[in-house]
């Protein structure tokens, strides 16, 4: 008995300072807790993955807006299905989001007042999307607009561009 105790002490004396002795019980406890921790973390990850859908059955974010000749110069046209304004000014075309940057309501073009107005909380914007007044934190974004090979307007709602980029036709 005293032999084992002596050997234990002498062994401890040989270990590097700060390096702890570990007995079997602690070792098994730590291994078990570690394994449970990894399994728990893994289950959080797979649960998150399960709840985040991989395939969405949502409308396409790219759409054709028809022939450019449909839009007269100095006009703002609201495309209700796409929630986008197609604006044609003398310098060219641009596509402005109709979804308010405040809380996601769909805005309306008020031709008589020459501005875009949100019905929910009263934000107002110019036709180029810059804010006039209201709680909206950002101007309405401009979407990438281009021409297809057969000469139609193509808008990509996932791609935001700088307001200065205008499509000349």
């Amino acid at each position: 008995m005293s032999d084992t105790k002596d050997s234990f002490v002498s062994e401890a004396a040989h270990t590097v300072p700060g390096d702890k002795e570990i007995n079997r019980r602690d070792f098994l406890n730590e291994i078990t807790m570690g394994a449970l921790g990894i399994a728990g973390l893994g289950s959080v990850v797979v649960t998150y993955q399960y709840f985040a859908p991989n395939v969405l059955f949502e409308p396409s974010t790219t759409f054709r807006a028809g022939n450019p000749d449909l839009y007269p110069i100095h006009s703002v046209t609201f495309l209700q299905d796409q929630q986008v304004y197609i604006v044609r000014m003398p310098e060219g075309f641009y596509a402005v989001s109709a979804v308010c940057t405040h809380l996601g309501c769909v805005t309306q073009w008020k031709a008589d007042a020459d501005m875009i107005a949100c019905p929910c909380h009263g934000s107002k914007f110019k036709a180029d999307g810059t804010k006039i007044e209201g709680p909206a934190p950002r101007p309405l974004p401009h979407f990438a607009i281009s021409l297809t090979a057969d000469g139609e307007l193509l808008v990509d709602k996932l791609q935001n561009i700088k307001p200065a980029q205008v499509l000349k036709v």
Partner: peptide, 25 residues
């Protein structure tokens, strides 16, 4: 629409939580 947009105003995780809650965009 308005309520879940309020959630997405949360920093960092907001839009993730909105995506999970709606199961889409």
């Amino acid at each position: 629409t308005v309520g879940t947009n309020i959630i997405s105003a949360m920093p960092v995780v907001g839009s993730k939580i909105r995506f999970l809650l709606l199961g889409g965009n």
